[in-house]
Amino acid sequence: MAAALELDRVSKTYGSMRAVEDVSLTIAPGERVALIGASGSGKSTLIRMASGLALADAGAGPARVTSFGVAVQEGGRLARDVRKARRQIGLVFQQFALVGRLSVLTNVAVGALGRMGRLRGTLGLFNEDERRTALAALAEVGISAHVAKKARELSGGQQQRVAIARALVQGARLVLADEPIASLDPKSAKRVMDTLVTMSRDHGIALVVSLHQVDYATLYFDRVVAMNAGRIVFDGPSAKITPAFLTELYGASAEELILPSQFSVPASADAADAPKSQTVS
């Protein structure tokens, strides 16, 4: 079976800054991988290229991205079938990326757009079946109580779980989550990570999660890919990831990855599921 995700020598330069440099990576179907690295190490760019939201530089290697054998991009151009590829890739962003003014249900139902007729999808005429699928997905991530609310009325952790429900409705076989817990409090962060991993396990969905801090990576994942300055510097079992090893990999900048352990933050956790007063979407 084709790999859930295959990056073949992709690079990305923003101006004079090399965000990702000649990276190749293969994720097997159903595999769960943590992508770690300090801010600016290229994690987000890598994930954006994997979903075709960012184009790899042309000319440096084949610059090819495929997902389950369907091309996402190659040689600095989006593939013709990119929408087909995207349908099987669910995305979860750091800043939630829901449409704040639309209801939670609609935000999840749009996951079905790829399977609907173009006109019906554009007009938002979701049928009974699609609605049921959306409700079931929301129940699975524990948001059933809020389906009619506007997405922006939900807390950050809840919005993140809505995004996961959208990936479920999409029927995604690979979920890419870019720093999904970076703007969440510890309790919500744990809940979101649990939801992601449970989803992956129950549905056999491959999962790539980029994380700013290491403790979650070692706790939830068997395989860890570590990036530094746009390159992959380690790809192996999470058991090998120790503070000493990180210092060896990153030198002084390892501090950023190790220090503020989210687990040790004392419980301000009561506020975890309260709606945020400030909207992010």
Partner: peptide, 28 residues
């Protein structure tokens, strides 16, 4: 905000669907 639009794009939506679900609710 471009993020919701990318969210729709990520599901495999068409350009028109990105406008309808990602742009219109924000500007209406």
């Amino acid at each position: 905000d471009p993020a919701p639009v990318e969210g729709i794009r990520g599901t495999g939506g068409t350009w028109l669907q990105e406008i309808v679900y990602g742009v219109l609710p924000q500007v209406l």
